[in-house]
């Protein structure tokens, strides 16, 4: 295809992505180093006889509005927001580092800083849910593949539901069940014989509930991918393994798994990206007292009465950096694969 034709075909989508993905990223970067203008203060000296003169400072509303309108982005403050307590908290971290005697103490204290607490949850969630999704999805795929053909369709239908459902709605549906007055909540209380047990009250249990939601939501995705992969399993290899006397476990280990390996890395990649942005379940589970994620921070800064754009932008930049680090190995591989194909 000629360059000019390519441009004609590609320009609408390129324009959309440029205007609403690339520019906003730049805009986020710029905003993260700016803060709203300070109010313009004027000092008025009022003198009354006998009492003397007092100087009062008041906000010059007109001048403040003028400067805000003239330059809505605010004033340049450099990396100040990044290093404040709500983000990287550099001075706090170095202080903690100097007074902590061992790593354990250091990390415990680090966990009290909001950004690092959110980071801890985001990473824990990402790196527990992702492998679990792969494993559970694989087990379901093996299982469904062994079912009778007639009921496979029904099973696939119901399996898709947790995946296509709106994340917020899925989270709410589970949350209402694990409520201490809900059916699962009561069941858990009955199992542990503790009528006051509430998943909402403890940080650890809340994290577990969120992880359970994450697996429940994404396992069907892994299942569908692996199930499709199983349909293309070379029958002769499996037969050869059976003739050689391989047990069922050995067949899975040496024939099925290697065949599905590319799909495993695909599922893991998508899951890493999606779990890193974990957000809706925290809203749905009303869990922000126990678990925050980077996305939730941004949401929290932007919502509400005072839109804290600078703070939200700084968190956004940090999130984007995090996503890029997660993606780097994959990008390098895609690039290398393509170059080899091109040769």
């Amino acid at each position: 295809m000629k360059h000019s034709t390519f441009i004609w075909f590609f320009s609408p989508t390129a324009l959309a992505m440029l205007l609403f993905i690339a520019f906003p990223i730049v805009s986020v970067l710029v905003q993260s180093v700016h803060a709203p203008h300070k109010a313009v203060l004027v000092e008025v000296e009022t003198c009354t006889p006998l009492v003397g003169c007092t100087i009062e400072t008041s906000i010059d509303q007109e001048a403040t509005r003028a400067i805000r309108e003239e330059k809505p982005i605010g004033r340049f403050i450099g990396l100040e927001i990044f290093s404040d307590r709500g983000h990287l908290a550099i001075s706090e971290v170095s202080k903690i580092w100097s007074i902590s005697e061992n790593f354990n103490e250091f990390f415990t204290k680090l966990g009290n800083l909001p950004f690092y607490r959110a980071m801890a949850f985001t990473l824990t969630f990402t790196f527990i849910v992702t492998p679990l999704v792969v494993i559970v999805g694989f087990l379901i795929a093996l299982n469904v593949n062994a079912l009778h053909d007639r009921i496979k369709g029904v099973v696939v239908f119901f399996s898709l539901l947790p995946f296509v459902i709106t994340p917020l709605i899925g989270a709410l549906v589970l949350f209402w069940m694990i409520d201490s007055r809900g059916i699962l909540g009561s069941a858990i209380q009955w199992i542990f014989a503790d009528p006051n047990l509430s998943l909402k009250a403890s940080t650890g249990l809340m994290w577990i509930s969120l992880i359970v939601y994450g697996v429940w939501h994404a396992a069907p995705f892994a299942f569908v991918i692996f199930y499709a992969g199983l349909q293309t399993l070379p029958a002769d290899q499996l037969e050869a393994a059976q003739i050689d006397g391989a047990t069922r476990a050995q067949q899975v280990r040496y024939v099925v798994l290697p065949h599905l390996m590319p799909l495993v890395s695909f599922v893991a990649l998508i899951q890493l990206m999606d779990n890193f942005r974990v957000f809706e379940p925290i809203v749905g589970f009303n869990a922000s007292a126990h678990a925050q994620s980077l996305s939730w921070f941004i949401f929290n800064d932007l919502g509400g009465e005072t839109r804290q754009l600078s703070s939200a932008s700084a968190t956004s930049v940090l999130t984007i950096i995090g996503v890029t680090i997660l993606l780097l190995p994959v990008l390098r591989r895609t690039w290398r694969d393509f170059m080899e194909k091109a040769k």
């Binding site: 609403f20 993905i21 520019f23 906003p24 990223i25 730049v26 805009s27 986020v28 905003q31 809505p72 982005i73 990206m273 890193f276 942005r277 957000f279 980077l294 996305s295 941004i298 949401f299 800064d301 932007l302 839109r307 754009l309 939200a312 932008s313 956004s316 999130t319 984007i320 996503v323 890029t324 997660l326 993606l327």
Partner: peptide
Amino acid sequence: RAMPPITLVSGYML
């Protein structure tokens, strides 16, 4: 695709 959409929102607001 990997960018969490919410990171872009603060860029849209202003």
